[in-house]
Design a protein around this nucleic acid. Sequence first.
DNA 1: GTGTCCGCTTAGCAAATGGCAAGAAACGAT
DNA 2: ATCGTTTCTTGCCATTTGCTAAGCGGACAC
Lengths: 198, 198
Amino acid sequence: MTGSLIQFFQQTLPLTEEKAMQIAAAFQPVSLQKGTYFVKKGQVSNRYLFLETGCMRAYAMDTSGTEVTTELYLPQQVVFEVASFFKKVPAAENYQALEDCTGQYITFDDLQTLFHAVPEFRELGRMILVNGFIAFKQRTLALISDTAEQRYEQLLATRPALLQHVPLKYIASYLGITDTSLSRIRKEMAQKHSKAAQ
Amino acid sequence: MTGSLIQFFQQTLPLTEEKAMQIAAAFQPVSLQKGTYFVKKGQVSNRYLFLETGCMRAYAMDTSGTEVTTELYLPQQVVFEVASFFKKVPAAENYQALEDCTGQYITFDDLQTLFHAVPEFRELGRMILVNGFIAFKQRTLALISDTAEQRYEQLLATRPALLQHVPLKYIASYLGITDTSLSRIRKEMAQKHSKAAQ
DNA sequence: GTGTCCGCTTAGCAAATGGCAAGAAACGAT
DNA sequence: ATCGTTTCTTGCCATTTGCTAAGCGGACAC
């Protein structure tokens, strides 16, 4: 079933259903067991994945060897390591399934072929990249200018489903704080709420 | 003179000089007086600029109305507001000349025309976008996992010229700290150095 | 059941950073 | 040269966050 893929294309960029189906047909199904890796750090990844079920995380190692969760993925999102995919360099990050996952992927070569054959797909691919870039810029701005509590509240407001699938330690890392700090923040927010309810 | 533009293209992606010249010919010269804006927040910008002389900054307003410098530009860099340029939405940030600047720009429509006419330019444009994305990801990772002092040292090591052109308050903001904190960090680093020299 | 691992919370203390305000220094316009 | 603005530094104190370690409860294997 590629229905959700077609739907995703059409909501990313206006596209006839015919074109959307033509593009979706170039994708192949894939499933990932919980805990396995879609991209391994140090290896070149030539796969571009549309996640349909499950959830994933991307993480890098910082200079002192600590894992830093750089992205969290839910269904209807595109997952790939930008640098490795487009520049054929070893990946700087690991991409891991946090649950059993299914999706549709396309390789770089097939994507290039499709780019040449279907002009609409060029626009679509660019738009997916641009949207990812824009989201990243907003996140960086929040890291600089918002408090950890504001960032957590923002995550709760915009992607509440993450809380139901992703361990808090990864969410803390994604927010740029430790699990200890996130726990404190959650406690304080719970106290505020109970006071407000009185 | 479009020499530096051609050189930039060729070092971003292998390209014959003929193709590089053909692409560069579609760009137009522009100059910006110190203090003026290349992109104004709230307006749609359809210009994609290659900066040749001078320096610029991009800044957004955070939720409490404070300016946050999100990017600093030196010559040989491409300057544009990704969201506004590609999605034709109002810009979220201001792009301002910090010195008198000169460069070469192309409009979105001319860029699209060139994309269709010159396949090599499609790859080049994508590579410029991808490189920007990768740089942004690295910066976000540093914001999460490095101390402010490490980020400042990194900036000193990789882009020392910024220090000679950009006021420290903008650099502080770009590093995600206040000018007060940056001043303290500079003081501590100077003390370390003088001790090390003894 | 019992032990073990994992996820989450809690506590105490240390370090980093911000907010505010004042002062010094550099720069620019007249 | 002078005045005014901007930039940078400094000091004081409050807040946030990290680090380390401990404890608690649930899930799961045996």
